[in-house]
Simulated scan of single mutants.
Amino acid sequence: MIIVVLLAGLLGLAVGSFLNVVVWRVPRGESVVSPPSACPRCGHRIRARHNVPVLGWLVLRGRCFDCGEPIAARYPLVEAGTGVAFALVTWFAGVSWVLPALLYLAAVSIALALIDLDCTRLPDPIVLPSYGVAAALLALAAWNLGGTAQWSALVHAAIGAAVMFVVYFVLLVVYPSGMGFGDVKLAGVLGLYLGYHGWASLVVGWFAAFLLGGLFSVALLVGGRAGRKTKVPFGPWMLLGAWVGIVLGDPIGSWYLSLI
Score class of each variant (00 low, 15 high):
V78N: 04
V170R: 06
W151C: 11
G160T: 00
L112I: 12
G146N: 03
A101T: 04
Y196T: 10
A141F: 01
L190Q: 09
G178E: 01
L202Q: 09
V127L: 06
L154D: 11
Y175S: 12
L140M: 13
L128I: 13
G160W: 00
A101D: 05
M164R: 09
T148C: 08
Q150I: 03
L137K: 02
P100V: 05
A141V: 03
L105G: 13
K185V: 03
S109D: 08
L137W: 01
G83F: 10
A106N: 05
T82P: 05
V166D: 07
A93E: 14
S130C: 02
W91N: 07
L112S: 11
V98H: 11
I126E: 15
G180T: 02
F165Q: 01
S201F: 09
L145Y: 14
D124I: 13
V204E: 09
L122N: 10
V84N: 07
A162M: 08
C119S: 14
L137A: 07
D118M: 06
A134M: 12
G81R: 12
F207C: 13
P123L: 07
Y131E: 01
G195R: 12
V89C: 03
S177C: 07
A111E: 12
D116R: 05
H197I: 08
S177L: 12
I159Q: 05
D183W: 06
L99E: 07
V203I: 12
Y175L: 13
L138Y: 01
L171Q: 08
L202T: 04
Y193Q: 10
A208C: 04
P176S: 09
V173Y: 10
V95A: 14
I110G: 07
S201E: 07
A85D: 00
L194M: 12
Y75V: 11
L137E: 05
K185Q: 11
L105K: 02
M164E: 05
A149V: 09
P76A: 07
D183Q: 10
A135P: 10
Y168W: 13
Y175W: 14
W151A: 15
V84E: 04
A87D: 02
I115Q: 07
G146Q: 12
D183M: 10
P176Y: 05
A107E: 11
G178T: 02
W206A: 15
D118Y: 06
H197Y: 15
A157T: 05
G94V: 01
L99S: 11
V155C: 12
V84Y: 11
A200T: 14
S130T: 07
V174L: 12
